[in-house]
Simulated assay, not measured.
Amino acid sequence: MIVTRLIKLRENKALKQFEVANLLNINPVTYNRYEKGEREPDHKMLKKLAVFFNVSTDYLLGLTDIPNIIDDYIKKSNIKQTHLTNDEKELLNLYCELPPESKTTIKTLTKTQYDLYVKPKLDEKAI
């Protein structure tokens, strides 16, 4: 499944195999072997490929036919896609794949950052 998905995703970006390999900082022969099915990416490379192609690792592995969890969520929830940048979508996709204990850590860090940088500005405006 990963073979056909990688080929399709690369072709959709109108890239050659060696271009993808260069952008991912891997040997072109290695990437070629991924697309031929002669080699499987390890979990770190799988994650890197998912981020590069803006899809979930589940999609690459054939566990779902939904390429991008966040795009599907946006469609179902009627949120205007223009409200999220590509960086925000990427972060949300990565977050969705984290185990629960990591999500708790991310929530805590995000809340701390919000309290430090956003909340004081909102408090200033209220005065």
Results as ranks from 00 to 15, higher is better:
residue 13 K to A: 12
residue 76 K to R: 14
residue 8 K to I: 00
residue 18 F to G: 00
residue 86 N to L: 12
residue 20 V to F: 01
residue 106 I to C: 08
residue 114 Y to V: 09
residue 108 T to A: 15
residue 14 A to C: 10
residue 50 A to E: 03
residue 27 N to S: 03
residue 103 K to Q: 14
residue 60 L to K: 05
residue 59 Y to D: 02
residue 123 D to K: 11
residue 15 L to H: 00
residue 126 A to Y: 11
residue 72 D to M: 08
residue 117 Y to D: 11
residue 43 H to F: 12
residue 72 D to K: 13
residue 54 N to K: 12
residue 31 Y to N: 03
residue 41 P to L: 02
residue 96 C to G: 05
residue 60 L to F: 05
residue 48 K to Y: 02
residue 100 P to A: 12
residue 75 K to P: 00
residue 83 H to A: 09
residue 92 L to T: 04
residue 118 V to P: 06
residue 26 I to S: 05
residue 101 E to F: 05
residue 22 N to F: 00
residue 71 D to A: 12
residue 30 T to S: 08
residue 72 D to A: 14
residue 71 D to L: 13
residue 40 E to D: 14
residue 122 L to N: 13
residue 108 T to N: 14
residue 30 T to Y: 14
residue 21 A to N: 08
residue 107 K to T: 07
residue 10 R to S: 07
residue 118 V to Q: 10
residue 15 L to N: 01
residue 20 V to T: 06
residue 115 D to A: 11
residue 109 L to D: 09
residue 50 A to R: 00
residue 90 E to I: 04
residue 58 D to P: 02
residue 86 N to W: 07
residue 51 V to R: 00
residue 125 K to E: 11
residue 87 D to A: 12
residue 104 T to C: 05
residue 80 K to V: 06
residue 65 D to C: 05
residue 50 A to L: 04
residue 109 L to V: 08
residue 103 K to R: 15
residue 82 T to Y: 07
residue 105 T to L: 08
residue 126 A to N: 13
residue 5 R to V: 01
residue 23 L to K: 15
residue 104 T to W: 00
residue 93 N to S: 09
residue 49 L to I: 03
residue 13 K to I: 00
residue 106 I to P: 05
residue 70 I to D: 01
residue 27 N to A: 04
residue 68 N to T: 10
residue 8 K to D: 05
residue 101 E to R: 10
residue 54 N to R: 08
residue 82 T to G: 06
residue 24 L to Q: 01
residue 75 K to S: 11
residue 103 K to W: 02
residue 40 E to Q: 09
residue 92 L to K: 02
residue 79 I to Y: 13
residue 77 S to D: 05
residue 54 N to V: 01
residue 14 A to M: 06
residue 25 N to C: 06
residue 39 R to T: 10
residue 79 I to D: 02
residue 62 G to T: 08
residue 34 Y to D: 01
residue 90 E to Q: 09
residue 14 A to D: 13
residue 1 M to D: 11
residue 2 I to Q: 02
residue 76 K to N: 12
residue 68 N to W: 02
residue 2 I to T: 03
residue 121 K to M: 11
residue 79 I to E: 09
residue 14 A to N: 15
residue 41 P to S: 04
residue 114 Y to S: 06
residue 90 E to N: 07
residue 97 E to F: 04
residue 87 D to N: 14
residue 58 D to M: 03
residue 28 P to E: 03
residue 81 Q to N: 14
residue 60 L to W: 01
residue 47 K to H: 15
residue 65 D to S: 13
residue 32 N to T: 12
residue 26 I to V: 13
residue 28 P to V: 02
residue 47 K to T: 15
residue 25 N to Y: 09
residue 64 T to C: 10
residue 11 E to V: 08
residue 114 Y to M: 09
residue 14 A to I: 03
residue 59 Y to F: 14
residue 111 K to P: 02
residue 82 T to K: 15
residue 90 E to A: 02
residue 5 R to C: 04
residue 112 T to I: 13
residue 45 M to T: 09
residue 33 R to P: 00
residue 35 E to S: 04
residue 36 K to E: 14
residue 87 D to E: 14
residue 97 E to D: 12
residue 58 D to I: 00
residue 15 L to I: 01
